Computed example of a mutant assay.
Amino acid sequence: MERTGTTRRRALIGAGAAVTAALSGCSSDEPGARRDAPPSVSAETLLRRRSAALSSALLGRYDAVLAAHPGLAPRLAPLRAQVALHVEALSPTGDRPRPASSPSSSSSSAGAAASPSPSSSASPSAAVPADAGAAVRELASAERSTAAAHTAALTGAPPEYARLLASVAAAGAVHVYLLTKGSR
């Protein structure tokens, strides 16, 4: 009796050929593949850049509030200095800002030197309220949002960086407390 149709042997040969074709399609030996292509940016580097950008925007917000309400400097300068340190700590190693040239500079000027951009002031679209109390409440809201974003980023972070993000998020929560209830 003669068999018709697909046999087990033919099915296995066909499946093996399909797997071989699929795997060879992924090979870097193809003429279009480049072995000298630059390595892609790691997920951790992208996460570090996003986290540093969030803290940098917060630093810009502090600068805008301090420029609009210089009388708040005694209350906000220590928090601003910590946010500047957060920007530096969260930045990827190659993107970290240079330290200030003078080691005896004040904490506010050292914080400004730790900013990754030449001007860390807030954009004109981020207007500061004329009322100092409202400006501080908006700053507390920005701190809360930044801390929440750092907390949300924990799930995709490698363990060591996750610990840093958790510490920065906790510091942000303390800043919110100090801005809203702690320093009245």
Rank of each mutant, 00 (worst) to 15 (best):
S119E: 05
L165Q: 04
S56F: 01
V168L: 13
A152I: 14
T155H: 12
T4Q: 12
A114T: 09
A52D: 07
L165H: 08
P39T: 06
A84N: 05
A148I: 06
I13L: 15
P92A: 09
C26W: 05
V168N: 07
S24E: 07
S55M: 14
A162G: 14
S109R: 01
A130I: 04
T155W: 08
P103F: 06
L76Y: 01
T93K: 11
P70H: 03
L12T: 06
A22P: 04
S55Q: 15
S27P: 12
G111L: 08
P74A: 12
T146S: 15
A57H: 02
A11Q: 12
D131R: 00
E2Y: 04
S91F: 08
L90K: 03
S119W: 07
P159N: 06
A11V: 15
G71S: 11
S119F: 09
Y62A: 10
L178N: 11
R61Y: 14
T4I: 05
V128C: 00
T146I: 09
A17F: 03
L12V: 11
S24F: 14
S27A: 14
P159Q: 07
Y62G: 07
L23V: 10
L59V: 00
E88Y: 13
G94Q: 10
S117H: 09
T146L: 12
S123A: 03
R61S: 13
A169E: 09
A22S: 11
R163Q: 15
A89H: 12
G14N: 03
G16E: 02
A166Q: 13
Y62W: 12
A122M: 02
L179G: 03
